[in-house]
Design a protein around this nucleic acid. Structure first.
Lengths: 245, 245
DNA sequence: TCGTTATTGTAACAATTTGTTACAATAATA
DNA sequence: TATTATTGTAACAAATTGTTACAATAACGA
């Protein structure tokens, strides 16, 4: 990862001008729900992982590639949820600072200071599997829970808010929990995912009955964790084609 | 509407390159559900109403303006539902033909032949109120029901399909029926909207009870249509701020 | 070995919502 | 004034969801 590569990566003629994407990458570890946030070199600026679309790749390909680069894992659940096209959504001053701090010439990369429309996606992953990697312009990428989220650039806080709303609305229509859990998990862990996402507690018995009634779970052996109580069964989701609409 | 104005309207430097929008405008007349489709001059090409985004207007403004121009009415319910960014979604041959047939020079408007990403919106209106107006490049704009839809350009059929899916998914979460009906309507008319959109019949009594239970309807005087039967009440929706997210 | 403790799995019952059937109350018309 | 086609409501049934209760354990320590 050197500066040469950076400037090469951002040649105007390789990309569709005015078009960017941003991703809200949700991670879960059995207990907490967090998202990935980038911090740019020496600027104090925080932002969502994002990128641009090359002329010879589709939008979905560009986003998928970007998310793989940040997380190191392939085959992530991705869902486009909204395109942001406000007049306010460019901050050429901030972008100029970011370029300068990365040793790039703002003049030579003037197209990056112009107005962008951004297509936003959210991704769901089990964050034990992940070793996040900052992008070319950032010096760090970290997991943040919603309570400790730093102030984000431009409209990125609005994007996070909308991502969470969409995730909540989709949660009971699709089986999104599966993407945040390891292969096998207990009913309590599944309930934890749902509660963290929805931000409210559920009744254990009703939750269990409803989940079993969906007929989407396979019961496996019990898991003996060493707790002084009955051991819970492990479950996995019946494999189905993931919906990548 | 003259050719001068057309070419003026499409000056490259006024617009964000690579960015377009398309709109699926649903109309209802108490009986049928239809959408607006454009036909281009002497090309046999059909397409959804769409347009481009000026540098000095937001995406939502651009779309709103475009829909007002086509329908002649302001304050339409509009909802962004998906952005299409496939590699396949430009057809420079077709675009060239459209420009030529409108007396425009493809060379001078080369940016229009390039790849576009399109943000798609759907709109809901009561189509009695509307007198559709073709855009600068089209010679007709007509209402088509889904059964008689002509073959559409590029991925526009996919866009229509997705619009219908989204409308259906949103129907029981939001009160979208209101945008397709006149100010006052009967319970039967409301049920007709729901049935046409969902493509399946509902039980009259359960539908009525559910609608009344939402507490979102105001009951007015009866409507005497001349039928040899009990006259139905008229209802209107309790006014609320329309959700234009 | 055998209570004790903290869960988990299930069943039983209650409350709520949704589906179905029945029927009286009309508007027009003959 | 009887007839016809619909509408508005109520009554009952079925299905879903919410709540409570309780037995079945794993581990631990007396």
């Amino acid at each position: 990862m050197n500066t040469d590569k950076h400037s090469q990566n951002l040649k105007k003629e390789d990309y569709l001008s005015h078009i960017a994407f941003d991703s809200v990458i949700f991670g879960f570890n059995g207990k907490d729900l967090k998202i990935l946030v980038l911090q740019y070199h020496n600027t104090g600026l925080f932002a969502l992982p994002g990128g641009f679309v090359r002329r010879n790749e589709s939008l979905d390909e560009a986003v998928s590639k970007g998310v793989v680069e940040r997380t190191g894992i392939d085959n992530i659940y991705l869902e486009q949820f909204q395109t942001f096209g406000g007049l306010d959504r460019f901050d050429s001053k901030a972008m100029e600072r970011i370029l300068k701090m990365n040793g790039l010439d703002p003049k030579a990369n003037e197209w990056l200071l112009d107005r962008f429309i951004s297509i936003a996606y959210y991704a769901l992953i089990n964050f034990e599997e992940v070793n996040p990697v900052p992008d070319a312009l950032a010096d760090s990428i970290e997991w943040y829970s919603f309570e400790e989220l730093p102030p984000l650039m431009m409209d990125h806080e609005e994007i996070v808010q909308k991502a969470l709303e969409t995730l909540r609305a989709n949660l009971d229509r699709k089986l999104l929990g599966m993407n945040l859990l390891p292969e096998k998990f207990t009913m309590r862990e599944l309930q934890n995912v749902y509660e963290k996402i929805m931000g409210e507690p559920f009744k254990r018995t009703a939750f269990q009955r409803k989940m079993l009634a969906t007929n989407a779970l396979i019961r496996h052996e019990k898991r003996f964790t060493g707790g002084a109580h009955r051991a819970p069964y492990l479950y996995s989701f019946k494999t189905m084609v993931k919906d990548r609409s």
